[in-house]
Measured scan of single mutants.
Amino acid sequence: MPSETPQAEVGPTGCPHRSGPHSAKGSLEKGSPEDKEAKEPLWIRPDAPSRCTWQLGRPASESPHHHTAPAKSPKILPDILKKIGDTPMVRINKIGKKFGLKCELLAKCEFFNAGGSVKDRISLRMIEDAERDGTLKPGDTIIEPTSGNTGIGLALAAAVRGYRCIIVMPEKMSSEKVDVLRALGAEIVRTPTNARFDSPESHVGVAWRLKNEIPNSHILDQYRNASNPLAHYDTTADEILQQCDGKLDMLVASVGTGGTITGIARKLKEKCPGCRIIGVDPEGSILAEPEELNQTEQTTYEVEGIGYDFIPTVLDRTVVDKWFKSNDEEAFTFARMLIAQEGLLCGGSAGSTVAVAVKAAQELQEGQRCVVILPDSVRNYMTKFLSDRWMLQKGFLKEEDLTEKKPWWWHLRVQELGLSAPLTVLPTITCGHTIEILREKGFDQAPVVDEAGVILGMVTLGNMLSSLLAGKVQPSDQVGKVIYKQFKQIRLTDTLGRLSHILEMDHFALVV
């Protein structure tokens, strides 16, 4: 994948999101292997301009796509893939009243899908469409860049269908997702969380590099694949309309690839034109409109599966009536509230959605109805927002919020430890010299600072030695090549209790 991002070429006709291997024109390309080798690009942008032909009021008969309808489940399912879809609609009884809503608040519980998330729908649909058009064949390999849930859905379907599955996901995604993927037989590649989507090191860039190296491999490409919004247009939206008897006044959905909100909203605009569509985008993402909503100094966020630093091709923002931004604290607070007060075992993005819903639905009156999409299960986040310690460490809970008995030293300040200034190293000294210094002084790690004293990161003896043994660096290389740029900081005025929580999850903390 090139470091400079080429513009994806656009073909003359058809839909841009065809499933299957992508040609340089962004659509299915038939021909000899030699032709494909000559024409197939190194990668295709996940934010390529959409060429979708959908228009409100256009006859369904003019759609270029294969459409399906929700099917009634048999008493005995032939395999677990038949437990994807037909998820329950559940009334939220307490939270709406707590925040003064007059309307009825309903939750579409997508964590009841077989793999635990709304992404099971698009995973199965992308595979079925690729099999139907002859792209996927027995023994082929599926590769997908994902925040985890699409990966789980694909790995689940691949396990049943017999495909090899490789999932490329950023490091910030939970260990629970990784464990589930491994249990399903998927191979996992992790990428830096802070890598831009168009960087060769991003999950998108690495996935395309693997595709170019592995024979008979395919990126189904949830960011561009029409099967993504079509899955929701054909099934999720129809289920909502049936469950609500066609009567709903507002739908609120958090947005990642945009397939969920695009597919549902398009069908609702056709069948229930008075329904307002509300999009939820986390602070630090750029999906919301108008652009002024996205202006923030924050560039990272903890909530998973929603928000991006690019506009995915499948996201149709014209069908969203209003956007709201959400933050991590309210997302996790509301997710825990949904679990504790409503018994809905949902993930953090569901918290984002409901946090926005109780604001947006203030305009609705008694007798009206708001539906929220709860995308995934708490299963993926047992060591994250479900953990009091994690919430404390991230600053989303305060010590006084917890009532468990603490040891005698818990409320003492870090400054009472009488710490001395640490050994520091410059980023320009060599790895070999740094190892000598650390061994001589008896230290395992040291902060790396520039000549102005600005902290650049941390270097550890173990990481340097393993990097040297693996051949990633040489003793003569500058130590700046092996620094940890993500590390926890703590102030002298913070409590030892807070430091204790940090050290339970990290090997060190830097006192500043």
Rank of each mutant, 00 (worst) to 15 (best):
S61T: 14
S254W: 02
D133Y: 14
R224F: 05
R224P: 10
L81V: 12
G134I: 02
N113M: 02
Y223A: 02
E37N: 09
N149S: 02
V180F: 05
L154P: 05
T235W: 08
I219V: 08
C109H: 04
D249F: 02
D129S: 10
Q55S: 12
C272W: 10
T13C: 02
P2G: 11
D35V: 11
V180S: 08
I142E: 02
K98C: 06
D179G: 09
P46C: 07
K98G: 12
H66V: 12
A253W: 02
T257A: 08
P88H: 09
I166R: 11
I92D: 08
K267I: 10
A237L: 02
D35C: 02
D129V: 09
E213F: 08
V255R: 02
N225M: 02
W43K: 02
H17M: 05
I44E: 15
S254Y: 02
D221G: 07
K177V: 05
I80D: 04
A69I: 02
C272G: 09
A69R: 15
L251S: 02
V160W: 02
R58N: 12
K82D: 02
D234Y: 10
N216L: 06
G31Y: 02
E187Y: 08
S254P: 09
K271H: 14
H66Q: 15
A231W: 04
G246L: 05
I95R: 07
G259S: 05
E4F: 02
K172V: 02
K108L: 05
R266V: 07
R224L: 04
K247M: 12
E40W: 11
G11Y: 15
K211M: 12
V189A: 12
G115E: 11
N228V: 02
G162S: 02
G14A: 06
R125W: 10
H67I: 10
L220T: 02
V252W: 15
D234K: 13
A207G: 05
L210V: 07
P145A: 06
A265F: 02
V178L: 02
C275Q: 07
F112H: 04
Y233W: 13
Q222I: 02
S199L: 07
S32A: 15
P200N: 08
Y223W: 02
V10F: 12
K94I: 05
L241E: 02
E34R: 02
E34N: 02
P273S: 10
K39F: 06
L220Q: 05
